[in-house]
Structure formats: C-alpha cells, structure tokens
Simulated assay, not measured.
Amino acid sequence: MAPDTRASTRSHHPCTHGRTWLPVVLLLAVLVAGLAGCSAEEPVEPEPETDVVVEPPAEEPAEPAEPVWQEQVSGVTDKLYGVAFVDPDTGWAVGGDGRGVILGTTDGGTTWAEVYTQDDYAFNAVHFIDSQTGWAAHQGDGESDIVKTTDGGQTWEKQTSGAVRSPNDVFFADADHGWIVTSAGQIWATADGGATWEQQESGVEGLANHLYDLHFVDAQTGWAVGWDRDGVIVATTDGGETWTRQDPTVEFLKAIFFVDAQNGWAVGQDGAVATTDGGQTWSAQDAGRRTLEDVFFIDAQSGWAVGAGSIVLSTTDGGATWNQERDGGAGTPVLYGVHFLDAGHGWVVGDDGVVLHYGIPEGTDG
C-alpha cells in the first residue's frame, strides 16, 4: 500500500501555513486590543439638559405725574374773594353773598368747612403769617371790619380799623406790622397786630377813588394799587410814613405782587404791567386785554394771574409771555383770588363758591 503523503505535504510547506493564519492572528490581536481599550475607559455620561431662563424685559420707569387743575368742593355757593395757604394742607378762603364766610381746610382743600360766619358784609381778603395767626377784612363802615385769629381759625376776634370805607385788602409783614387799603383810597396801618390802627397819607384819598390791593416785601417796603381817574400805584420804603405815586401806564388796577424789592407785577382791567426796578418804571406785558383780578408769583420767573371768564394765565419767563391754562368764556364764574406755595401747589377761588386746585391728583405718583 502506497504511503499517504497528504499529511507530510501540509507539514512541510511552511510558506503555505504562514499565508493562512498570520492575518487571522493579527486581526484577532487588533480586536482584542481595541476591546481592552474600550473596557478601560469610563463610560461617558450625557450632559444633563439645563432649563434656559428667559428674563422678562425690564419695565420702563413710569413718567412722574404732572400737576393739573381740578375743581374742589367748597360746600358753599357764595362768592369767594380771597385765599391763603401756609402749607400744602392748611389754608383758608373768604367771601360771602349777603353774609360773610371764612372757610378752612386741613387736607389741601379736599374738604372745606365753615370756620367763621357773620350775618352781614362779605369778607374781601385774608392773610396769614403762619399756621396760627391771620386776619380777614370785610365790607363795613369802619366798625369791626377786621377779624383776627391766633389759633388757626378756630376762634376769631373782631378788630376796628376806623376806616371811612370798607377795606379791600389786608396784609401783614409780621405779627405786628400790617396795613389795609379801602374803597376811599385810604391806607391804614397797625404796629400792634391790629389792636389799634392809624391812617397814613396815601395821596389818593377820596370817596370816588379806590385802592384794591397791597403787598409788602418787609415791614418797610410795599406798594398799593387801584384807580382814581387813572390807574394808581403808590409805594413806600419807610413802612408807610410816606407814599409816593408811580406811573403804572395802564388804568384800573386790581392787584399787585412783588417777589423782592425790585421785581413786581400789577394786573387789572387792561392786562398786566411789570417792573424790575422797584416801580420806578413799569412796562406793559402781553397778557391780552382781559380783566384780571389777582396775580401771584413764586419767584421772578414763575407766576399766575386770574380773572373774568374763569381765565387762568401762567408765565415761566417773568411775564414776557403769558400762557392760557383755563378759559371758560363769557358768562362763566369770575376768579378773584390766587395763591401758590410752589410750582406744584396752588389754589384759585371765585364766583359761586368755586375753588380750583393745582397739584398732582390723588392716587398718582408724584
């Protein structure tokens, strides 16, 4: 039997054996190494998803509220001729129609109450030097034509000026020194808080003449306005010992106001005039040919004037220009008195118990 040579043939051809197994061995080594490397690495955890917080857009800051004119309820239908405030809460208004009435408020005019009344003679003017001490002047015959309070209006004491005709205005520079002007062109003065009064020589006395308003910047320096045949302005620098007539350039003046010894304004039937030299010269201002009853300034630039037809004028340039803030037209209440504490607090009074307040409305941010 012939010998089997297949086995010897496979075992004696090393080249054939290498081509068959070497690639397989190398592939297995690579796979093993790869698996070993993978098993040695830590598994990679996926990044946790994070919530994206979206901030709301920033709110625009609210615009500050601006002062506006609003009518207040006085509780009366009388004509109101004068108004005075000593702080944003505390004030008084006076007038009357067949009687005399003084109103008071302690909440800026939100509510008003009658604090003093009398059967005859309307009150024409009111003036306070602080929260406790004030005077009011009323139409009369010189007997008990002034009342005074020293307790904020809770009680009023009658005073007698001795004037021939009723006082139209009263003004005090301090607790002692005060003056009244009358419808007979008279000026009366007191140096003891109104206990006694003496007449001063105004230079315009006469039953057909009128002085309507006066204003002092201190106990020595003051002015009074009115009319005889023409417009009248008289001035003093010695407490009224002497009064000197000035030329107002217009007729029928009703009110005057000074912020210091140099800068002043007067208003009346023909509009407004102003001075910057204590009244040595007066110049007409373009306030329109309206009848203006009162004027008030808080500084040399900012002021208000009121009058017929419910008109309210304002200026921020010393009266070089006057702007109309309110105008009710013909037949609407006349506004007789205006008083401001500052640029954001003011009051106006007039016919039919009208009270207007200039300020930031309640419930809004100032």
Rank of each mutant, 00 (worst) to 15 (best):
R6I: 00
R6E: 11
A7M: 01
S11D: 12
P14T: 03
P14V: 06
C15I: 09
V25T: 12
L28E: 07
V32F: 13
C38D: 06
A40Q: 11
E41D: 08
P46S: 09
P48V: 06
P48E: 11
D51Y: 03
P56G: 00
E59S: 07
E60Q: 14
P61E: 12
P61I: 06
V68P: 03
V76N: 08
G91D: 00
G91T: 00
G95Y: 10
G100C: 08
G104E: 09
F128G: 12
H138Y: 03
H138E: 02
Q139K: 05
G140R: 11
D141P: 01
T150K: 07
Q154M: 11
T160C: 08
S161H: 07
S166G: 15
S166W: 06
P167G: 09
F172Q: 00
T182V: 06
I187M: 09
I187N: 07
E198W: 04
Q199M: 14
E201K: 12
E205N: 04
G206P: 05
N209P: 07
F216W: 03
D218Q: 08
D218E: 09
Q220R: 14
Q220V: 02
W223C: 12
W227F: 15
T236G: 00
G239W: 02
T242C: 05
T242L: 04
Q246I: 02
E251C: 02
D260F: 03
N263Y: 00
G264N: 08
W265S: 05
D270G: 04
G271V: 04
A272Y: 05
D277F: 04
R290K: 11
E293H: 13
D299F: 04
A300S: 14
L313C: 01
D317N: 15
T321S: 15
W322T: 07
D342E: 06
G350E: 10
D352Y: 07
D352V: 03
V354R: 12
V355P: 10
L356D: 04
Y358N: 10
Y358P: 01
G359H: 07
I360D: 05
